[in-house]
């Protein structure tokens, strides 16, 4: 084979033919996946929001929302992390992959980090990561980062309400999602 043929082959449909249509592969994979056990009843879709909250501020803010009985939609599930700086962007991809419709990373306000500087790294990392997500086609409303202090129970409830509403409006997430067509 001449170089040119090889070069062309790597660029065009030839390669795909050898691979088989991507769609076919995806379907084959999905057919082999068991339906998710214990999934919510299919009749009414409810958004699922995964929130990574730092222990010292945002998790405490969520606790305060609780002690103050400030209601918000039950679609939010909080994962406790010591610091928002602990949150690897890959966790967010995993959450979307596993079926989350929206993801929040919440930490102390810049300057108030319990560990003094963790959230500054969070800020950089997720300013970039948010752009990456949007660039590959994840709707902007699905990923959020917020600063919520331990005294901001009302803000926690409000943010959760807003995000749930926004994600509900966007509908079920399909980007990055594993075995998306099973449902």
């Amino acid at each position: 084979m001449s170089i040119r043929a090889a070069a062309a082959g790597s660029q065009t449909a030839e390669a795909e033919e050898v691979l088989g249509p991507a769609e076919a592969r995806r379907q084959a994979h999905q057919a082999s996946q068991p339906a998710a056990a214990g999934a919510p009843a299919p009749q009414a879709w409810e958004p699922l929001i995964v929130a990574f909250c730092c222990n010292w501020c945002s998790y405490a803010g969520a606790d305060l929302a609780g002690t103050s009985r400030l209601g918000y939609p039950p679609n939010v599930r909080v994962i406790r992390v010591p610091c928002s700086g602990r949150v690897n962007p890959l966790f967010i991809v995993k959450a979307f992959q596993s079926g989350a419709d929206g993801v929040l990373v919440a930490g102390c306000h810049p300057g108030d980090c319990h560990y003094s500087t963790g959230n500054y790294f969070t800020r950089r990392r997720f300013l970039l990561f948010r752009r990456l997500l949007e660039f590959i086609g994840v709707e902007p409303g699905r990923f959020h980062a917020r600063w919520i202090s331990g005294s901001e129970g009302p803000k926690f409830a409000q943010v959760m309400t807003e995000i749930t509403q926004e994600v509900r409006r966007l509908g079920p997430n399909r980007m990055l999602r594993d075995a998306r067509d099973v449902q």
């Binding site: 969520a62 609780g66 009985r69 209601g71 918000y72 039950p74 599930r77 909080v78």
Partner: peptide, 23 residues
């Protein structure tokens, strides 16, 4: 956290129990 993050902030309904199970 079934109290501050669940029973105290959500109404008495199935979705709340479902959330508790998830947690």
């Amino acid at each position: 956290n079934l109290r501050e993050h669940c029973s105290w902030v959500h109404p008495r309904e199935e979705a709340t129990t479902r959330k508790a199970i998830d947690l």
